[in-house]
């Protein structure tokens, strides 16, 4: 049968296009405008070419923030992905406790970012916070406000607490889709627990795991609110990640030109890494099929 071609359907997406233009494309263009111009207010702009970009690429401050950012994303991925898989594997498969665990796991995901930050900011305080006070009582020298390592640990643990559920829930969904017959066949074939994971569970989880890793990477690479509320980027600059630095530059110092150039590069880097990551993963998948 011939497929009917009807291009009029495109008109149906027009409203969305208009909305997106106002909410995303136009603001983005303003940023582009700032990135290539210099301004002293009064709506006067002077062409600056790639100067801001050059300044940003060679800036130590930005390179340091980028380094911290990459380190942070790698650490939380290395913790959250295996931990999420582990939790998903051990969650009850059905009955009351399955629903109970699902709700429990979903709870951190429902809390607004700044509330998460506030929770941990208070939780970790040595004077009134349960965690900080307990650690201090145990004789452990913990203070996230003046020890960079303690600040990092706090921010990482907070992210793990906030987002491991997402990985676990996605993996759980993947696991639930495996027919019982696979486990039975594996028992008949005398497969070990590891083989069951390696040849049955992991392959079936691969699709959702890819999405989980992508989401966690993008989110962690753009993290702003929680560390900002807890540490404010400190002590010193030790937990100043890219977006915190960007906000400081743009709304703190009003260096709009450099900040615009910075954010465009930031955006492109995330886009690039996500694209490379996605392409590599899907290509691996395709190669395996042959």
């Amino acid at each position: 049968m011939e497929k009917t071609q009807n291009n009029k359907a495109w008109f149906l997406v027009l409203p969305v296009l208009v909305l997106v233009a106002f909410s995303a494309i136009l603001p983005l263009m303003t940023v582009v405008n700032y990135a290539f111009n210099d301004t002293f207010g009064q709506n006067e702009f002077f062409w600056a070419g790639l100067d801001w970009f050059e300044e940003m690429v060679t800036s130590d401050r930005l390179q340091d923030a980028l380094g911290r950012q990459i380190l942070f994303s790698l650490i939380i991925l290395a913790i959250e992905v295996p931990l999420g898989i582990f939790i998903a594997l051990n969650m009850p498969k059905k009955g009351f406790w399955a629903s109970f665990c699902l709700v429990l796991m979903a709870l951190p995901l429902l809390i607004p970012f700044n509330v998460v930050g506030t929770i941990w900011q208070i939780f970790g305080r040595v004077d009134i916070g349960l965690l900080g006070y307990t650690l201090a009582a145990m004789g452990i020298d913990y203070n996230y406000t003046n020890d960079p390592l303690d600040a990092w640990i706090t921010v990482v643990v907070m992210d793990v607490w906030h987002w491991t559920s997402l990985v676990a829930l996605l993996c759980y969904a993947g696991l639930q889709s495996i027919p019982q017959a696979y486990y039975q066949a594996a028992r008949i074939d005398q497969a070990t627990r590891w083989s069951v994971f390696r040849y049955i569970e992991l392959p079936k989880m691969k699709g959702v795991l890819l999405i989980a890793v992508l989401l966690r990477f993008m989110d962690s690479f753009m993290i702003y609110t929680e560390p900002f509320v807890v540490t404010g980027g400190g002590p010193g600059n030790s937990t100043t990640f890219l977006s915190i630095d960007l906000a400081k530059m743009a709304t703190g110092q009003f260096d709009l030109g450099p900040a615009a150039a910075f954010s465009i590069m930031y955006f492109l880097v995330i886009l690039l890494i996500s694209w490379v990551f996605y392409t590599v993963m899907t290509n691996l998948d395709r190669e395996e099929a042959h």
Binding site: A181, Y182, Q184, A185, I188, Q190
Partner: peptide
């Protein structure tokens, strides 16, 4: 357990 019984089983739907 099944693994200790050394038994083969083929199911109705392929695995």
């Amino acid at each position: 357990a099944t693994t200790e019984r050394n038994i083969a089983q083929v199911f109705q739907f392929p695995v």
